[in-house]
Simulated scan of single mutants.
Amino acid sequence: MEHMELTELTGQTEQIELGDVTVTRVKEYYGPVGMTPGAFIPTSREDAWRDNDAWHAPDFLDPRTNIVNAAVQSWLLRSEGKTILVDTGAGNDKERPYSPVWSHLRTDFLATLGRAGVAPEDVDIVINTHLHVDHVGWNTCLDGRDWVPTFPNATYLLPKDDFDFWNPDNGHKPLLGRGNQNVFEDSVAPVHRAGQVHLWEGSHRIDDNLRLDTAPGHTPGSSVLTLVSGTDRAVFVGDLLHSPVQLVDPEHNSCFCEDPVGARATRRRILGWAADRNALVVPAHLGGHGAAEVERSGDAFAIKGWAPFTPYVRAEEDEAQVTNA
């Protein structure tokens, strides 16, 4: 991504109830990502975006500039008395020489989290669906000259395959080249040294409502979080897909997928699961409505409906509104 000013930082939060689980959307950034559709999703046709302007523009594509819009956000889940944060965005103060758009940010993400009723010490579990630069940034924050865990009481659930792949000691050559430089050192290794990391493999049950499973392709350890509570279903897919174009045609990869063949197979499998179970598909970076239900359409899929998120209002704010009415 080219360097730009992040002018559309946002403190918005929205929520939805899924069975016994409350899901709150906590945005760090929403706006242009400096890439055209053809650059971001190279196999997608321009007309596939233009023919669906009704749901692409302006939430996912700015028709004036032909630049993709996306969100960097976390999903805050409250389940069985636990406070769980899914992905932690880009973070503040990070040195990102080969990803300048994420370098030395100063956002109010923690204040936004506070407006959702959560302080850093309240978080019980942090989930990194994978270890790309824009998913682990708030794992740590700067304390003097040291990177320390932002969430001091949390267990950080990291997929072991991604931990091993991105560990520079192992000498892997990722597709991103140096695009993830410094990320392991400042956002992953410190929480591991602090003894707060649980490296899981294959599948990991969090509670009766939530389960993590590996879903490789985007990265070797990419994972999805499945929510099953009462009659509600959802799957948090990380970067398995970024755009509605991929919701309807799982053959399209983003330019960031390490294993294109594996990513396509995983995306098709997860979308099939969601379509067959009326489950909400919740990507990490989907702007606009943030999530959608899909249904089968021949060998592909169709968007059945968007997630009905509503603005989050804290209980004391709600009481104040009633009192002042």
Rank of each mutant, 00 (worst) to 15 (best):
V294Q: 02
N167D: 15
E258A: 08
G272P: 01
E295D: 11
D169A: 15
A307D: 01
W273P: 05
A154D: 09
N209E: 10
G221K: 02
F309G: 08
N52I: 00
G81P: 00
N209K: 01
T150H: 10
D259R: 03
A274S: 12
D20W: 01
A90T: 09
H218A: 09
D108I: 00
L227W: 04
K27V: 13
S74C: 06
D232W: 00
P32T: 03
T10C: 12
S103V: 02
G89E: 05
V136Y: 09
G137R: 01
L18S: 08
P149G: 12
P168H: 06
N324H: 10
G31Q: 05
R233D: 08
T43L: 11
D87N: 15
T231D: 15
H104P: 00
L271H: 09
Y98S: 10
G114A: 14
G202E: 10
A307H: 00
T112I: 04
Q181I: 08
N324I: 06
H285C: 07
I16T: 09
N66H: 10
L76I: 08
N153G: 14
I206C: 09
I206K: 05
L131R: 06
A279D: 05
H56I: 01
H242S: 08
D59N: 13
K173D: 14
T323Y: 12
N209P: 00
P168K: 03
H204T: 01
